[in-house]
Amino acid sequence: MRYYMLGERTLVIESRPPVSLSVQQRIWGLAQQVVHEPGVAEVIPGMNNLTIQLHAIPPSQQSAIAQLKAWWQAAKSFVPESRNIEIPVIYGNAAGPDLRSLAEKVGLTPKQVVEAHSAERYTVFFIGFQPGFPYLSGLSPSLACPRHKTPRLSVPAGSVGIAGSQTGIYPLTSPGGWQIIGQTSYLLFDETREAPFLLRPGDTVRFIPHKDGLC
């Protein structure tokens, strides 16, 4: 694990790659533990990392890092209540403009990419970037592909993409650099719902190829 400070009042703990569900469960447990500690203003779980904002500047960086290490040593894993969510996806063509080029980059056919992407059961590690944007762990290493060097100015809401070793879904139309391989009609974020986010950390997700796409 790496322990460091960002600025004067922010602590960060992060695991070195590759990402791990067991580490993420301990991150969730640590977040639940330290949010009640005196002096802690906010905790922000990420992908195998946790950011802790303090109310005041600590006496020294060394003492703050020592406290962070002690919290981690005492942290217990937390497994949140999980739901299994199936999300229909239209793969390829206008819905997935990067499917064919991604397939070429990873040495597969577009159909093989769809089969590999929809075969996995993914875990939501955290929600970030946009309201309701799920960062999903579990992508097959055979599909790993870098982001675009130049992001698109507009990626439609519902776009399913790949970036590095992660896959995710854009809840809102926005600029973005992920490789877009499909699109879902499901609303990932709806402020009119009692629970605005469709997904939450700990949920598992499966993508179901829609008959109108490239199957």
Rank of each mutant, 00 (worst) to 15 (best):
M1H: 07
R2Q: 14
Y3N: 11
G7F: 10
E8G: 06
R9Q: 14
T10A: 15
L11Q: 07
R16G: 08
P17F: 13
P18A: 12
S20A: 14
S22H: 05
V23S: 11
V23W: 09
Q24H: 13
Q25C: 08
I27N: 07
I27R: 07
W28N: 00
Q32N: 12
Q33I: 04
Q33D: 10
Q33G: 03
Q33C: 04
V34T: 01
V34M: 02
V35K: 11
E37I: 02
I44V: 15
L50C: 06
Q53D: 05
H55E: 15
H55K: 12
A56C: 10
Q61W: 08
S63P: 04
A66R: 13
Q67V: 08
A70R: 15
A75E: 09
K76L: 12
F78T: 04
F78C: 09
V79A: 13
S82R: 11
S82F: 00
N84W: 04
I85A: 00
E86I: 01
V89N: 07
Y91S: 04
Y91V: 14
G92A: 11
N93F: 14
G96S: 14
D98M: 03
D98A: 10
R100N: 13
L102G: 05
L102H: 04
L102C: 03
A103Q: 06
V106P: 03
T109I: 11
P110W: 12
P110N: 12
A116L: 15
S118Y: 05
T123A: 12
T123K: 06
V124S: 00
F125V: 06
F126C: 10
Q130P: 01
F133T: 05
L136Q: 05
L136T: 02
S137I: 09
G138S: 03
P141C: 09
S142R: 13
L143W: 06
L143A: 06
P146A: 11
H148T: 07
T150C: 02
L153V: 13
S154A: 15
V155A: 04
V155F: 03
A157P: 03
G158H: 02
G161L: 12
I162W: 06
G164P: 09
G164A: 14
Q166V: 09
P171E: 02
T173Q: 15
T173C: 08
G176F: 13
Q179Y: 06
I181M: 10
I181F: 02
Q183P: 03
T184M: 14
T184Y: 09
Y186A: 15
R193Q: 12
E194P: 01
L198H: 01
P201R: 02
V205W: 00
V205S: 02
F207A: 01
I208T: 04
I208D: 00
I208K: 01
P209H: 08
H210K: 11
G213Y: 06
